[in-house]
C-alpha cells in the first residue's frame, strides 16, 4: 500500500500570538512508496511530527487529502479509520508509549487484543508472531516484565514490535531512535529496514544522522516545507 499526501497543509491556532494561524505544514504533496524506507529529517519545530500524524490518520489536514492507496483517510468514519489503522498502519509515536498496566508481551499483543480474543487459533498465531518479533528485537526474555522495570531502549524496542505485530503494510515511526545508543539504534533500524525490504512502506522521522544511512529515500523539512534530498 502507498500513502499519499495531496496538497496537504496544517495550521495551528497560536493563542499566544493573538488568534493568528500558524502554518506548521505548508502545502505538501508526497507519496510514500511500498518497499521503501523514507527518512524525513529536519530541525525541531519544522513540522515533522505534524506531517506524520496526518499520515497516521490522527490529525486531519487543514486542507488537502491523505490517501491510503485511493482511500481518503479523513473521509472515513472513526470506526473504519481506527480499524484500518489497527490492521494496516503501525505507529511508533514520539516519546515513551508503554501501557503501564500490561507486561511486555501483552503490550505487544495489544493491537490484536483490542479487537480479537485470547482464546482462538488466531491468538496463538499472534503470540508466535510476537515472540518472533521480541526475539528479533532482543527482548524475548523480558516478555513477562512490566514496563516500569525496563530501560528506555527496551521500551522503544517493545513499541517497535507492537507496531509490527499486525504485519501492517505501513509503518510510521516518529524519532524511533531518539534516546537510544548506537547498538539499540541499529537493532530498531534493522527491523524497520527489513520491513521495507519485504515490501512494506516505512516512514521514519528523525534528527539522527545514523538513521540516514538506512534510508532508501531522504526527505528534509524546514519551516513546514518538505524537499527531496
Amino acid at each position: 500500500m502507498k500513502l499519499t499526501a495531496l496538497q496537504a497543509t496544517r495550521n495551528y491556532i497560536r493563542k499566544r500570538e493573538g488568534s493568528n494561524l500558524f502554518c506548521a505544514v505548508e502545502e505538501t504533496s508526497v507519496t510514500l512508496e511500498p518497499g521503501t524506507l523514507t527518512v524525513l529529517s529536519g530541525p525541531s519545530g519544522s513540522g515533522k511530527s505534524t506531517l506524520l500524524n496526518m499520515f497516521a490518520g490522527l490529525l486531519p489536514p487543514s486542507s488537502g487529502q491523505i490517501l491510503l492507496d485511493d482511500t481518503d483517510l479523513y473521509h472515513l468514519e472513526d470506526r473504519e479509520l481506527s480499524r484500518l489503522r489497527n490492521l494496516h498502519i503501525g505507529i511508533i509515536p514520539q516519546g515513551q508509549t508503554a501501557l503501564a498496566a500490561f507486561n511486555v508481551q501483552d503490550n505487544i499483543l495489544m493491537p490484536w487484543l483490542l479487537y480479537g480474543s485470547r482464546k482462538n487459533e488466531a491468538f496463538s498465531e499472534k503470540r508466535k508472531r510476537a515472540e518472533e518479533l521480541m526475539e528479533a528485537a532482543g527482548i524475548l526474555e523480558l516478555r513477562r516484565e512490566m514496563p516500569s522495570g525496563l530501560s528506555g531502549g527496551e521500551i522503544r524496542r517493545m513499541a517497535v514490535c507492537r507496531a509490527m505485530l499486525q504485519k501492517p503494510e505501513i509503518i510510521l515511526a516518529d524519532e524511533p531512535t531518539g534516546d537510544l545508543d548506537e547498538e539499540n539504534t541499529a537493532v530498531v533500524m534493522d527491523l524497520l529496514k527489513e520491513h521495507a525490504a519485504s515490501g512494506g512502506t516505512v516512514f521514519v522521522v528523525t534528527h539522527d544522522i545514523q538513521v540516514r544511512t538506512y534510508a532508501d529515500r531522504m526527505l528534509s523539512m524546514r519551516k513546514g516545507v518538505v524537499t527531496e534530498e
Binding site: D78, R79, S82, R83, R85, N86
Partner: peptide, 16 residues
C-alpha cells in the same frame, strides 16, 4: 489520557 492516546494509535476507535 496518555494511555488512551496510545491505544488510539494502536487502532482503538473512540467508541472502543
Amino acid at each position: 489520557k496518555k494511555e488512551f492516546a496510545v491505544l488510539r494509535t494502536l487502532g482503538a476507535s473512540r467508541g472502543k
